[in-house]
Computed example of a mutant assay.
Amino acid sequence: MLKDFRTFIARGNVLDLAVGVIIGGAFATITKSLTDDIIMPVVGAIFGGFDFSSYFVKLGPVPATYAGNPDSYAQLKAAGVPLFGYGEFVTVVINFLILAFIVFLLVRAVNRVIAAAEREKAAGVAEPAADPAEVVLLREIRDELKNRPVAGTTPPSI
């Protein structure tokens, strides 16, 4: 069983998938930072606030024992207050769209490189041009001279 597992792991597809997941996780972190730290502050400034992800609507009462900030989405959520966090949802959707667009650009670039390589390969596989008549004639003369007996020797037997 261990041998089968080792064979399974050693396959290229499994290793490619593992690399893809690791790079995807790191790439998602970069995209999240791009969204949270660069894009959403600009969007928040356009819509009247700097922290767009903190836009929410309270769906239930705040507990009487709650001592935190009544305008803090994170604190109210941690206290168990039912909230409709539309700002966080919009942030996640924008993050997804950015990630999907960047992946689209990467796939498009890879497809172009592969297509160019295939075109180059197809052009390189083309049949070589026919030899000129002079070259063919010279080869025939060479081959005929090889088969002629040299003076003073016996001809080869067939």
Rank of each mutant, 00 (worst) to 15 (best):
L2Q: 12
K3N: 15
F5R: 10
R6K: 13
T7Y: 08
T7G: 09
F8T: 09
R11D: 11
R11S: 14
N13D: 10
N13I: 15
N13T: 15
N13F: 15
N13L: 13
V14R: 06
L15A: 11
A18L: 13
V19T: 10
G20L: 13
I23S: 03
I23D: 09
I23E: 02
A26R: 13
A26C: 13
T29G: 10
I30C: 14
T31E: 13
S33I: 14
L34W: 09
D36N: 02
D36F: 00
D37C: 06
I39S: 00
M40A: 09
P41K: 05
P41T: 04
V43C: 02
V43Q: 00
A45D: 14
F47Q: 07
G48K: 03
G48P: 02
S53Y: 02
S54Q: 07
Y55I: 01
Y55E: 06
F56A: 13
K58T: 00
L59G: 12
L59Y: 01
V62M: 03
P63I: 06
P63L: 11
Y66S: 07
A67Y: 04
N69G: 04
P70F: 00
Y73Q: 10
Y73D: 03
A74P: 07
Q75M: 12
L76Y: 00
K77D: 08
A79Q: 00
A79E: 02
V81Y: 00
P82S: 09
P82F: 06
P82G: 11
L83P: 00
L83I: 01
F84R: 01
F84M: 05
Y86E: 12
F89H: 02
V93S: 07
L97E: 03
L97D: 11
I98F: 00
A100M: 02
V107W: 04
R108N: 11
V110G: 15
V110D: 14
N111W: 03
I114A: 15
A115H: 03
A116E: 06
A116S: 12
R119H: 04
E120F: 09
K121E: 14
K121I: 13
K121Q: 15
A122I: 08
A122L: 11
G124L: 08
P128M: 07
D131H: 05
L138W: 11
R139E: 04
E140W: 00
I141M: 10
D143K: 12
L145V: 13
K146L: 05
G152E: 08
T153S: 15
T153C: 14
T154A: 15
P155F: 04
P155Q: 07
P156S: 09
I158Y: 15
